[in-house]
Amino acid sequence: MQLLKESLCTSLCGEVSLRRRKDGRITVSTPFRFPDGDALLIIAEPTATGGVRLSDFGHTLMHLSYSMDVDDIMKPGNRNELFSKILLDHGIAFQNGAFYTEVAVKEIGKAVFSLGQALSQVFDISFLSRARVSSTFYEDLEKAVYKLTPTASIQKDYIVENRSLSADYPIDYRIEFPGTIEPLFLFGVPSNEKAKLATLIIQHWQSEGLKFISFVVYQDQSKISRSDVARLTNVGDQSIASLDAISDMKRKLEHIYRLESSSILGPA
């Protein structure tokens, strides 16, 4: 046991070192690596109270920005919840894009591990990309809607006014383009259940005599049962099979509303 402990301590110490940078700051070199082989950046600076501040100086978010829009992490949603939980779990502060922790000098070892673990976990948020995780579908849909229809009047979770029981038949997005008569009712459909619900809602408002054009955006149409897709296709007006087909959505909207794409619609 003692021998193992000594070997472990020697081995761990061998993996961690301090190095003076060209600008005079001190880098804490650790074995922590991003998947691309780059080391996490941890810089140590003395604090006014005699302690030490360990900071990544914003390097981690910059690294993350190669593969995703880091602003998405700061918006309400699954990514932001995960981000906040990581900071809380490891007692790490975040300010102006940099992660840091301040500790007494004798606690630097534990702090290096905590910060290293937190930075690794923050980087793992990049794996929550649209292509990989279903739980970000609604966040990605919202981003796509606002990007594609910048000049339109958009009402999220729209409840039709002055109609009885309208709260039971909500619309994901009501989009009204300038100079058009019929609004677009847009539904995001990530599951069979939502496909059934969207079918029911569209049918309900059609039977109520409401004038609108319905548009369905599937998360992945191939994963929805054929019978649910068939029913929704029959009652709905237009659809795209996934958010990857957003350029097709733009083309269809131009066709429906005869829009001048350059002035009314944003980039696909």
């Binding site: 060209k22 600008d23 390097h59 190669y66 990857d244």
Partner: peptide, 20 residues
């Protein structure tokens, strides 16, 4: 990086038809 002169990067990525 705004604070560290030597922390910079530039790169090229291929965008597949499915957006990856």
């Amino acid at each position: 990086n705004i604070s560290l002169d030597d922390d910079f990067s530039c790169g090229i990525a291929w965008k597949s038809p499915d957006g990856e």
